[in-house]
Amino acid sequence: MPWFVKIETGIVNKKIFDQYVPAHKKYVLDLINQGHEAKTGYWGDYGGGMLLFKAASLEEAETIIKKDPLIVNNCVEYELHEWCIVVE
């Protein structure tokens, strides 16, 4: 399966954003348990972060990220890209 990356920028204040972090973590753990090898994190120097995961296609990747609580609750703007690995 190819890798995909959701690059996100926060669009709400931290108090609102932090309300959805536990649900986002559960969502990522569910992705891991489903075999998507998901990893999530945030930028150390400014607001925003990234979700890296495997999916069968861009269409499946779009379906997956639309279920992310950070997106469902309008906490982030995002870009979705297929990540083509050159060297492993």
Rank of each mutant, 00 (worst) to 15 (best):
M1D: 04
P2K: 00
W3Q: 03
W3M: 11
F4C: 03
V5Q: 01
V5K: 01
V5F: 04
K6L: 12
K6Y: 06
K6I: 12
K6M: 15
I7P: 08
E8H: 13
E8F: 14
T9R: 09
T9H: 10
T9D: 02
G10Y: 06
G10F: 08
G10I: 09
G10D: 13
G10C: 05
I11R: 11
I11L: 03
V12A: 10
V12F: 10
V12S: 06
N13H: 09
N13T: 05
N13L: 05
K14M: 08
I16R: 06
D18S: 10
D18A: 09
D18R: 11
Q19R: 15
Q19G: 09
Q19C: 12
Q19S: 11
Y20W: 07
Y20A: 00
Y20M: 02
V21H: 05
A23N: 08
A23I: 01
A23W: 03
H24I: 02
H24G: 00
K25V: 03
K26Y: 08
K26G: 10
Y27H: 14
V28I: 15
V28K: 04
V28T: 04
V28S: 02
L29P: 01
D30K: 12
D30S: 11
L31K: 08
L31N: 00
L31E: 03
I32C: 09
I32H: 10
I32E: 04
N33W: 00
Q34L: 10
Q34Y: 13
G35A: 05
G35D: 03
H36P: 05
H36L: 09
E37Q: 12
E37L: 07
A38F: 06
A38Q: 05
K39R: 13
G41N: 07
Y42V: 14
W43H: 10
W43T: 02
D45A: 05
D45L: 12
Y46N: 07
G48Q: 02
G49H: 02
G49P: 07
M50R: 08
L52R: 11
L52W: 04
L52Y: 09
F53A: 03
A55G: 07
A56T: 14
E59V: 15
E59L: 15
E59G: 15
E59I: 10
E60K: 14
A61E: 04
A61Q: 01
A61N: 11
A61P: 10
E62M: 12
E62W: 03
T63N: 14
I64R: 06
I65W: 07
I65H: 06
I65N: 07
K66G: 06
K66R: 12
K66Y: 01
K66V: 07
K67Q: 15
D68A: 00
D68T: 06
P69T: 06
P69F: 01
L70R: 05
L70F: 04
I71M: 02
N73I: 09
N73M: 04
N73W: 05
N74V: 03
N74Q: 13
C75G: 10
V76R: 00
V76W: 11
V76M: 07
V76E: 08
E77W: 04
E77A: 13
E79W: 12
E79A: 11
E79S: 15
L80P: 07
L80E: 03
H81E: 15
E82K: 09
W83V: 03
W83L: 03
C84I: 15
C84L: 13
C84Y: 11
I85P: 01
V86P: 00
V87N: 12
